[in-house]
Lab assay of single mutants.
Amino acid sequence: MDTYKLILNGKTLKGETTTEAVDAATAEKVFKHAANEHGVHGHWTYDPETKTFTVTE
């Protein structure tokens, strides 16, 4: 398992979190669910070198 990071750049919610996942696709599902639960919808990017997802509203 690897550690993946999410950076939230929402209009009303900003922050960072991490998750352990077997691959980037699994981490993305976890992060998108969490972002949706917090009402953050926007443009997603992924940097494979740093294993970091970013969502920007």
Rank of each mutant, 00 (worst) to 15 (best):
Leu6Gln: 01
Pro48Trp: 07
Tyr46Ala: 00
Thr12Arg: 05
Ile7His: 05
Trp44Pro: 00
Tyr4Val: 01
Thr19Leu: 13
Glu37Gln: 13
Asp23Leu: 03
Gly42Cys: 02
Ala24Ser: 08
Gly15Ala: 15
Lys5Gln: 05
Gly39Asn: 10
Tyr4Ile: 01
Thr54Tyr: 07
Glu28Thr: 03
His41Phe: 14
Ala27Lys: 00
Thr56Asp: 08
His43Glu: 15
Gly39Leu: 05
Lys29Met: 13
Leu13Val: 15
Glu37Tyr: 10
Glu57Arg: 03
Val55Ser: 01
Thr18Asp: 05
Phe31Trp: 01
Asp47Met: 05
Lys5Thr: 13
Glu57Thr: 05
Gly10His: 05
Thr18Arg: 07
Phe31Cys: 02
Ala25Met: 09
Thr54His: 06
Leu6Asn: 01
Gly15Asp: 08
Thr18Leu: 09
Val22Lys: 14
Phe53Asn: 00
Ala25Glu: 13
Thr56Glu: 09
Thr52Cys: 06
Val22Trp: 12
Gly42Phe: 04
Val22Met: 13
Val30Gln: 09
Ala21Trp: 01
Lys5His: 10
Met1His: 08
Ala27Asn: 00
Thr3Gly: 04
His43Asp: 13
Pro48Phe: 07
Trp44Phe: 04
Lys14Cys: 15
Leu8Glu: 03
Lys32Ile: 11
Thr54Asn: 04
Ala24Gly: 04
Ala21Ile: 02
His33Met: 12
Glu49Tyr: 11
Thr18Ala: 07
Glu16Arg: 05
Lys14Arg: 12
Glu57Trp: 07
Thr18His: 10
Gly39Gln: 06
Asp23Thr: 04
Ala25Asp: 10
Glu37Ala: 13
Trp44His: 01
His41Gly: 06
Thr54Phe: 07
Asp23Cys: 05
Thr52Phe: 03
Asp2Ser: 13
Thr18Lys: 08
Ala25Ser: 09
Leu13Lys: 07
Asn36His: 14
Thr50Phe: 06
Lys5Pro: 02
Thr19Gly: 03
Thr54Ala: 04
Met1Gly: 09
Phe31Asp: 00
His43Ser: 13
Phe53Ser: 00
Thr26Cys: 07
Thr56Gly: 04
Gly42Asn: 02
Leu8Gln: 02
Pro48Val: 08
Pro48Asp: 09
His33Phe: 10
Thr54Gly: 03
Ala25Pro: 08
Thr12Phe: 15
Gly10Ala: 06
Tyr46Arg: 00
Glu16Trp: 10
Phe31Pro: 00
Lys29Gln: 13
Thr52Leu: 04
Lys5Ala: 04
Thr56Met: 06
Thr17Trp: 15
Thr12Gln: 11
Lys14Thr: 12
Thr52Glu: 04
Trp44Lys: 00
His43Gln: 13
His43Pro: 05
Thr3Asp: 04
Thr12Cys: 14
Gly10Gln: 04
Glu20Met: 14
Ala24Arg: 11
Glu28Tyr: 15
Asp2Ala: 13
Ala27Asp: 00
Thr45Phe: 10
Leu6Lys: 00
Asp47Glu: 09
Val40His: 03
Lys14Gly: 05
Asn36Ser: 14
Ala27Cys: 02
Leu6Gly: 02
Val22Asp: 07
Val55Arg: 00
Ile7Glu: 04
Tyr4Cys: 02
Thr12Met: 09
Gly10Arg: 03
Met1Tyr: 12
Glu57Cys: 06
His43Val: 14
Asp2His: 14
Glu20Phe: 12
Thr45Met: 09
Thr56Cys: 07
Ala21Gln: 06
Lys29Arg: 12
Leu6Ala: 03
Ala25Trp: 10
Glu28Ser: 06
Gly15Lys: 15
Asn9Asp: 12
Thr12Ile: 12
Lys14Pro: 04
Tyr46His: 01
Tyr46Asn: 00
Ala24Val: 12
Met1Glu: 07
Leu13Glu: 09
Thr56Pro: 01
His38Asn: 10
Phe31Ile: 01
Thr50Ala: 06
His43Ala: 12
Lys51Ser: 03
Leu13Trp: 15
Lys29Leu: 12
Val22Thr: 12
Gly15Val: 15
Ala24Tyr: 13
Ala24Pro: 10
His41Ser: 11
Gly42Thr: 02
Glu16Asp: 05
Lys11Glu: 11
Lys29Ile: 13
Lys29Trp: 09
Glu28Leu: 15
Glu20Val: 14
Asp23Asn: 09
Thr26Val: 07
Glu57Gly: 04
Gly10Leu: 15
Lys5Asn: 05
Asp47Val: 05
Thr12Pro: 04
Ala35Glu: 02
Met1Asn: 09
Gly15Gln: 14
His33Cys: 11
Val30Leu: 13
Leu8Gly: 02
Lys11Ile: 15
Gly39His: 06
His41Ala: 10
Thr19Asp: 02
Thr19Gln: 05
Thr50Lys: 07
Ala25Lys: 10
Tyr4Met: 01
Asn36Tyr: 14
Gly10Asp: 03
Asp2Val: 12
Gly10Glu: 03
Thr26Asn: 08
Lys51Leu: 11
Glu49Pro: 08
Ala35Ile: 08
Tyr4Thr: 01
Val40Asp: 02
Thr54Cys: 08
Gly15Met: 15
Thr50Gln: 06
Val22Leu: 12
Val55His: 02
Val55Trp: 03
Glu37Ser: 13
Thr45Gly: 06
Glu16Asn: 05
Asn36Pro: 03
Thr17Glu: 12
Asn9Pro: 04
Asn36Thr: 11
Asp23Phe: 02
Thr18Ser: 11
Glu16Phe: 11
Thr17Cys: 15
Asp47Cys: 10
Leu13Ser: 09
Leu13Gln: 10
Thr50Met: 06
Lys32Glu: 05
Leu6Pro: 02
His38Gly: 08
Glu49Phe: 12
Trp44Asp: 00
Ala27Gln: 00
Lys29Asn: 09
Val40Phe: 12
Thr17Ser: 11
Lys32Cys: 07
His43Gly: 06
Lys51Tyr: 07
Asn9Ala: 07
Lys14Val: 11
Glu20Pro: 06
Phe31Glu: 00
Glu28Met: 13
Val40Pro: 02
Ala25Cys: 11
Thr52Ala: 04
Thr17Gly: 07
Glu28Ala: 09
Phe53Tyr: 06
Val40Glu: 03
Ala25Thr: 09
Ala21Pro: 00
Gly39Arg: 06
Lys14Gln: 13
Thr50Tyr: 06
Phe31Gly: 00
Thr52Arg: 02
Tyr4Asp: 02
Glu16Pro: 04
Thr12Lys: 09
Ala24Cys: 13
His43Ile: 14
